[in-house]
Design a protein around this nucleic acid. Structure first.
Lengths: 138, 138
DNA sequence: GTAACTGCAAAATATTTGCATCCTT
DNA sequence: AAGGATGCAAATATTTTGCAGTTAC
């Protein structure tokens, strides 16, 4: 995995610092979206809270991770699947929020048809958020 | 409108206090979702910041307003259309986020077909967030 | 009259910024 | 060597809590 991590950072023109490697490792190991607090906690006394904020910003800017809409005043970040990156990322995207374990998953393989909008509204992209119970919690 | 405000509060078993009337009035006048900061600002030196927090909580609990997922670490509250309340509220719901004016609208009349999920995932409800430019900003 | 609501103060959290130092390239 | 990244401290911003006083019914 270390090799993969370095590759991803290089490909995105991000310098290979310890903090970035650690944060990226967390995203690769998790199959669900992360919030700042989880990352901060996981890397407690390894990298600083502020560095986590800045690392997330730089990952976001590169498109390495993306934001997932939430209703709970948190920001959820999900690793952007490198394969779908140029295909679906800017288009329709499906996320699943498990109301039991509170985890959010990207459903990269699920698609949905575009929806017709009222006059005057012009769409850029659509994202679907499905709430329910996930595979682990069923 | 005053009559309407009182009616809505009564119907929802909420006492008719000045603060609640003012907050509800804002929701009725706006055709888009509000965030705490907007409400606080609009009612500056009329009702306290803390009361706004508590009023939003009580409206939420009654279903008078509902949450809209956002990616920007804010909580957006939209007035729940009384007509669709028992029909669509717990089911599929469509919101439109205008990337120009940053306002979010409920599209009560737009519907979409349910999406098939991978095995193990069980859905409760789905909500679609469409980003683009709204009627006012076109 | 009583329970619920409100305002104020303060505590607790969360996020951002500045700056000196360290690390990657 | 140089620019960018980091840690620490501190400034801001946001949200929650406690409590005494007030209001709705």
């Amino acid at each position: 995995m270390e090799f993969q991590i370095d590759q991803i950072l290089k490909k995105n023109k991000l310098s290979l610092t310890e903090g970035r490697k650690k944060v990226l490792e967390l995203f690769l190991k998790a199959d669900y979206a992360l919030v700042h607090a989880e990352i901060e906690k996981a890397l407690y006394n390894i990298i600083d809270r502020v560095t986590v904020y800045r690392t997330l910003q730089s990952f976001l800017k590169k498109g390495l991770i993306h934001l997932i809409p939430t209703t709970d005043n948190s920001i959820k970040y999900a690793f952007t699947n490198q394969d779908v990156r140029h295909q679906q990322f800017q288009e329709n995207h499906v996320h699943f929020f498990c109301s039991n374990c509170n985890k959010t998953f990207c459903l990269d393989n699920v698609t949905f048809p575009p929806i017709k909008l009222p006059d005057g509204f012009k769409e850029q992209f659509q994202e679907l958020i499905i709430t329910g119970t996930c595979d682990n919690c069923k």
